[in-house]
Amino acid sequence: MRIRVEDLTKRFGSNVALDKVTFEVPSGSVYGFVGPNGAGKTTAIRIMAGLEGPDSGTVLYDDLSAVEYPEKARRFVGFMPDTLADSKDIRVWEYLDFFARACGLAGKEKEKALIRAGELTNLDNLSGRFLCELSKGMKQQVSLARILLHEPSVLLLDEPAAGLDPRARAELRESLRSLAADGRTMLISSHILAELEDLVDGVVIIEKGKISACGELSEIRNRSASGECRALLTFSSDAASFAGKVEALCPGKSVKVHSPRQLLLILDSEEEYFSAMAKIFQAGLPVTALSRPDCGLEGVFMEKTKGEVQ
């Protein structure tokens, strides 16, 4: 199902949270929704989920307007808020049972849905525990299981990975990847760009309520490509002592000490990058990690946003 957001505007008093926001997520693809704090991500996602009305503009799922008919849109939208599932005095299975009932499931069908959602999110051993006793990561799993009960074809996730430890994040990513493989359209807002990197097909970048870039990752990257290519080399010991060797291997290129253990190498083109790396590795320098700061999602994000918090 395709998501189209058109000219969405929302004001809170004199504060313009969203200013004519327009973007599109093609059917079946996974998009990241990134931007600095206070950019308006949560506001936009809440409007898309039909929880709040915009001042103007529409959200279209295929041809259905979620602004005019939020209750119809809810049938195929799964929305995970940025707050945790945290009701008092309720067990996990009771909580999920409620949402299954609320989606109109009953009897065998309900049980099947509960089991399926539980398997997708590894909830088996949590079901008897009270929701408010769970850790953040577990609550996040419960939230995810909840929105999967009615098998939505569109998923809107607001910071699903916030506050999770690396292992929980890896598990969440696995769950999300298997969901994406099912052909659902997903919009994931997140601050942890490395998380999104290998999950998303494209990004929507928002800043101060305005869209600054939107589209497939490669497309955005090409659009802003200057030809220059940066490589960040991490060494196991003091990087400065290797600077001379690297410079000798790549004559004429700029080599800077980025941090005590990192060197930044600036090359002119992609071809140069590959040949330079081959030389460095052949020379047997103790490089423990290699990254391209200008290339990934982070590079795009840094270039497209100015880092001002609204």
Partner: peptide, 21 residues
């Protein structure tokens, strides 16, 4: 008091995103 706290923590929203009338 429970609803009030739930609302403050934005926990009521899941109920509103179901198809319940």
């Amino acid at each position: 008091s429970r609803w009030y706290v739930e609302r403050g923590q934005d926990c009521l929203t899941p109920e509103y995103t179901t198809t319940l009338s």
